[in-house]
Design a protein around this nucleic acid. Structure first.
Length: 346
DNA sequence: AAATCGGGGGT
DNA sequence: ACCCCAGATTT
């Protein structure tokens, strides 16, 4: 049997029941694909349900405020996905008069939609003959064909895209694309793949050569840096605190946080006081500072580890940018801040 | 070509 | 500690 036939047959038997598999509405498919970028289905699923419920059409999403979109995205990470999603919804709704792009080339023009996502939407919704190449596809193809080109090199990206394109069936492109991804996720897994009962075992070169655990090959990534974050949790007598919007580029753009003192080394209370008294946020004569978490919280991101302390700063009154603590849960915040807010219970 | 952008889960 | 996840964008 042919490679694509085996996968499509396997898929018809083993595919999971997922909500975005019950529709070809490009808006829903788009939503699901953005949510699932670098995200496991288990983590993304509840977010998908929330988004289609709160924003049933692209127009509803376009009319929302960005901060409300980010609030619903809170905890999912890679927040540029949410900002670009909202930006593109406005683009579709206004510039395209609500008409969703109908082919790969036009889909690519959407912010946040790259080769993978454009191929996924075009094939699933419009049966266009474009191959998806995600982490699953890299794994299945590198093993089956014993390809050692690093999957995150320029050469590898081109090579695997061309191969995936050649392997496409003549019809039902969307089903085949989903089949090879599902196969990679459930059968040809990164560790402990089920090679003993695999419909592709016969032709799998990596299995024959006992190289399954060495493929796919990947270039090493840069090491993580270490930073020290000191968040100042202000508390005034009249129940206010301060949240600031992160407007600069970088992590957590357009999310909110407590005023932050970032440092190369761990700061003690005197260092905090020194910097605090240089601001105009408090009355120097009458305030108190205490450390909330004796043990640093080490928040691990893919490329940096944030050693975090929360400092409670009690003061009589706050004027600048202060918000009511009763409203604090309405702001989109990084999960690091969100966890603190849950625990602190204002 | 390499770095950046999150958070959760597995080994 | 290191890797992976229905990747895209910026540097």
């Amino acid at each position: 049997m042919i490679f694509n036939n085996i996968l499509t047959n396997w898929y018809s038997i083993h595919k999971r029941d997922l909500p975005w598999r019950e529709t070809k509405n490009p808006y829903f498919i788009w939503l699901s694909e953005i949510i699932l970028q670098q995200t496991q289905i288990k983590q993304g699923l509840p977010y998908y349900e929330t988004f289609i419920s709160k924003f049933p059409t692209v127009k509803d999403l376009a009319e929302a405020k960005e901060s409300d979109v980010l609030k619903l995205w809170q905890g999912l990470g890679y927040y540029s996905r949410a900002r670009n999603l909202h930006y593109s919804a406005k683009y579709i709704s206004s510039i395209l008069n609500g008409q969703f792009p109908k082919n790969y080339k036009e889909l690519l023009k959407l912010k946040g939609v790259g080769d993978y996502t454009a191929s996924a939407i075009a094939s699933i919704c419009y049966n266009e003959s474009t191959a998806v190449v995600d982490g699953n596809v890299y794994r299945v193809l590198s093993r089956y064909f014993n390809i050692e080109t690093p999957i995150n090199s320029t050469k590898g990206i081109k090579e695997f895209k061309i191969l995936a394109q050649q392997l496409l069936p003549k019809s039902n492109i969307g089903d085949y694309n989903q089949a090879i991804m599902e196969f990679g996720a459930m059968q040809c897994k990164p560790t402990n793949p089920n090679c003993k009962e695999c419909p592709l075992q016969d032709g799998c070169k990596a299995f024959a050569l006992n190289k399954i655990s060495h493929l796919p090959s990947k270039l090493k990534k840069t090491k993580v840096s270490k930073k020290h974050f000191n968040f100042l949790v202000f508390l005034s007598n009249d129940g206010k605190t301060i949240l600031e919007k992160r407007t600069k580029k970088g992590i957590w753009q357009n999310l909110y946080q407590f005023p932050l003192i970032e440092s190369k080394k761990s700061l003690a209370i005197n260092g905090i006081k020194r910097q605090l008294e240089n601001t105009s946020l408090i009355n120097i004569e009458n305030y108190s500072v205490s450390l909330y978490n004796e043990k640093e919280i080490i928040h691990k991101l893919s490329h940096q580890h944030l050693h975090t302390k929360f400092w409670i700063v009690e003061t009589e009154s706050l004027s600048k940018n202060s918000i009511d603590t009763a409203d604090i849960k309405t702001y989109p915040v990084p999960i690091l801040i969100g966890n603190f807010i849950e625990q602190f219970n204002f």
